[in-house]
Write a protein that binds this DNA or RNA. Structure first.
Lengths: 328, 328
DNA sequence: AGCGCTTCTGCAAGCGCTTGCAACACCGTA
DNA sequence: TACGGTGTTGCAAGCGCTTGCAGAAGCGCT
């Protein structure tokens, strides 16, 4: 493996010049620059990341903590984050926490010396814990607003509001909500919104669950939803919805004739053929990119003015999966 | 952040002694050891990974290359690998390649200086390319046998054989196989086996696809399978099967009365409620752990005697999703 | 011609750790 | 008593890179 010195010798300059040529090209005269680059290419030189990390104190790694990888929302976010980071020569390490506060905290602690910052998906640790981590390495929160931390969320409640409105307009009175895991800040948030909206509009809402956001759980919950006598159902996420629809199919429940359905995200629905389902479009990939951008800014810039978080807007796709309630 | 020197001062010994006490405790006298440990604890010392990597030439990272994360087979393998690696103080970096040979090769190349080894899931690069990478950093292949490389595969063909036998026994003559992506070594392997078995047993096999192994693709393929007039269908993986079943439900196709079904893995089926589906149980987590174990051995031991790969056995769960063909 | 200035380059220190080697004390043995 | 061995520790070099500082050119200007 060629080192800086090898390149220096090859190009007839000093190691410092090579270093500058490669990482701060403007500091080097044109002809030298070209000579160095040529030499580096010839030798197939690649900077040793450990050595660089040692001197600069930056590893070029970000860590993204995710509850699990089976949830397409997380994997989409993680993949987008990786892609964007890759473009600036950084890498995103994905660490699975299982949605367990202890594991999340452990990951935060163990990796603090190996990464330049953390993006934590749907954090379950206490705000204090997260802030403590932030004092050592920048932390941004995804999918939960944490006071004092740059946070990126999605305005799903706003999008769901539109769906409720539409349901009321269609004449629905009894709606089911299949809730996500209790640890989910997002779910709590949505439920609060839902209750409030219900009070305002006279909708009757029955909450089912909570359940793990997995296909199988949706399948299992379908029957209960049906039996509850509602005329429409909102589901925590698209993975669950798929499960619910799966069982509806087997039970012979027609959508929307028998029941109206909508999901709070559209990730797993994205390329589902057949009639589309009403869903709140959540820009999971943007979320991942926003987190990486924010982390990069914190690492490069003044660590004290942290970038502002954002709540990303959603768009609602209202389709024929919503129809007037069956007048039984 | 406390450094080795800080600990040395605190404990009243030299830095080398601290280093040895922490990484080779047997080389240090008992009382010194205790003193050093106490000092390290007091200061909350954690070795700087970059510095360690610089001197030892080992980063403590393995990379696992996966085609995508939405496939539960890959995420299961990756998670299991991470967990096992974590137990020995290593970390597994997951890199998504999209099943694209160019991206896979690029990842292999770009990360070669940051990791101690690669575990490549279902590699799509040429054997030559993989071997070249292996010359620089140990590479193990998962889910494909690559000559010259330690490879871990699963004996799905063997398991499927049992399923075929059972189908023949039940009197089926026309079977559909919904094939996975053309880049999949595993799929090619299975197909070869299938063809051979068909020749031997007089089964008529029609191959559908190839398709991407995703839920939506399963949904889309269901109709065609149905129309092909087969009496049983085997599906490349469980994610696809879920999609097929989803559509069957909507179309009113009953399993197994109208059609027998089986999947070549059981990952996404694992906790699906309702009547079980015939599936070949693939130990995805063991695959991940085996890869990490092999890589660790290669890094620690003599680099020339590489650990032997294995083909992990499968177990077949034959259920009532298989029944005699409907005598139309 | 001499000045200050900007540009470019090299020197050398140092990031925090590991490790070969040498120093030392202490042991049993001849 | 002297010697080789063993066990424990410190010294110092060095891993490959970055960067502050200073020296060397080259410039336009008076």
């Amino acid at each position: 493996m060629a080192s800086l010195d090898d390149v220096a010798r090859e190009a007839g300059v000093s190691a410092s010049t090579v270093s500058r040529a490669l990482s701060r090209p403007t500091m080097v005269a044109e002809p030298t620059l070209l000579r160095v680059r040529a030499a580096a290419d010839r030798l197939g030189f690649r900077a040793n990341p450990a050595a660089r990390a040692l001197t600069t104190g930056r590893s070029g790694f970000f860590a993204m903590l995710v509850p699990d990888l089976d949830n397409p929302f997380y994997s989409t976010t993680a993949t987008a984050a990786q892609d964007l980071a890759g473009a600036t020569g950084r890498r995103v390490i994905i660490a699975v926490t299982g949605g367990d506060p202890a594991r999340e905290a452990a990951a935060l602690h163990e990796m603090e010396s190996q990464v330049d910052g953390f993006a934590v998906q749907s954090p379950v640790s206490s705000a204090a814990e997260l802030k403590r981590a932030h004092e050592r390495k920048p932390v941004v929160a995804i999918n939960r607003r944490v006071p004092g931390l740059t946070s990126f969320t999605v305005d799903t409640p706003g999008g769901l509001g539109e769906v409720y409105d539409r349901l009321v307009e269609l004449g629905h009175r009894d709606v089911a909500y299949l809730a996500g895991p209790p640890s989910s800040w997002m779910d709590r948030h949505r439920r609060a919104e839902l209750v409030e909206h219900a009070a305002r509009s006279g909708l009757r809402v029955r909450v089912h669950g909570p359940v793990r956001p997995a296909f199988a759980e949706g399948v299992a919950a379908a029957r209960g939803i049906l039996d509850s006598g509602c005329t429409a159902v909102l589901v925590y996420n698209s993975l669950l919805l798929l499960g619910v629809m799966f069982e509806f199919g087997r039970l012979g429940v027609r959508v929307p004739e028998d029941l109206s359905v909508a999901a709070a995200d559209d990730i797993a629905l994205a390329d589902l053929p057949g009639p589309p389902i009403t869903a709140v479009r959540t820009p999971a990939d943007e979320l991942g990119r926003a987190a990486v951008t924010a982390l990069s800014a914190m690492v490069d810039g003044d660590p004290d003015d942290r970038p502002r978080g954002r709540r990303l807007p959603t768009t609602v796709r209202i389709t024929d999966s919503l129809a007037p309630p069956r007048t039984a």
